[in-house]
Design a binder for these strands. Structure first.
Length: 257
DNA sequence: ATGGTTGCTTAGCAA
């Protein structure tokens, strides 16, 4: 089972590249983030013509997540389903062949100490509570997404530049550690313990050609799934410029179980 | 210290 995650930074801006990538990669499921459209504006027809079912949790202008899958999901859930009412579309879960596949878009947090930072920390706590409430670490769960966190300095090309940022601050790294501590394996790290692989490069300052990136996108699997891991990689090719279309600022991450 | 880019929506915000 091939599972991928990709922050496309607008599905409408990325439609052509997404279709090319689907044809080339043919994942069983891909978790998308930042689709930036309401459900009615999602390009269902093109995705279905490519052979994929689209499960969408959209939002106007910002955020929005989706999961594309070769098979029809057996179960779908949008949001945390907790008491905290939240207008932001950042979490979507489907069940595929007995495996829970989750697409998550963790808030960026803007700047340490801001209201958005507090929301990011709270959102991470809710995500942890959601997992603990719904699943056990012995069940097949694959949590994918843009976590807006670089776990440690192996995930950052220039760690000193980012040390106090919302992506690397000790508080958010501790939150990420707690999430993994519930029973999730970072599959790219397991396959590439030497690190120095990135999934996001700023559009500015020639960050990609200089390979000055951070790893913010993860596929996190419970041990029953991680035990069946055969491959995990970041598709840097997809971040390259050139041709008629522009890349997202994030590269896809792909794992095979 | 600032601005550098992209996308959505149309001057400014979010990333």
């Amino acid at each position: 089972m091939k599972i991928a995650t990709w922050n496309v930074n607008s599905i409408r801006a990325r439609e052509e590249r997404l279709l090319d990538w689907l044809e080339r990669t043919r994942p069983d499921a891909v978790c998308l983030q930042e689709i930036k459209v309401v459900d009615q504006a999602f390009p269902y027809a093109a995705i279905e013509a490519a052979g994929y079912q689209a499960t969408v949790f959209g939002q106007k202008t910002y955020n929005g997540v989706a999961i594309l899958s070769l098979n029809k999901p057996d179960d779908v859930q949008r949001g945390f389903g907790d008491d905290d009412d939240d207008a932001q579309a950042r979490l979507l879960r489907v069940k595929l062949g007995g495996v829970e596949v989750i697409s998550a878009y963790v808030p960026n947090g803007e700047s340490v100490g801001s209201d958005k930072w507090a929301y990011k920390l709270r959102w991470m706590r809710r995500l942890g509570e959601y997992l603990a409430r719904r699943f056990t670490a012995g069940a097949p769960v694959v949590l994918c997404g843009d976590f807006n966190v670089a776990r440690d300095d192996l995930d950052v090309a220039r760690p000193d530049d980012w040390a106090e940022s919302v992506l690397c601050h000790p508080e958010i790294r501790a939150a990420m550690d707690r999430l993994l501590g519930w029973g999730l394996v970072d599959v790219v790290r397991r396959r590439h313990p030497e690190g120095k692989l990135y999934s996001w490069w700023d559009y500015r300052n020639l960050a990609f050609p200089r390979n000055e990136g951070l790893r913010l996108d993860y596929i996190l699997a419970t041990e029953p799934m991680a035990a069946r891991l055969t491959d995990a990689a970041i598709d840097r090719q997809e971040r390259k410029s050139g041709g008629a279309t522009k890349p997202s600022d994030h590269a896809p991450v792909v794992a095979v179980f």
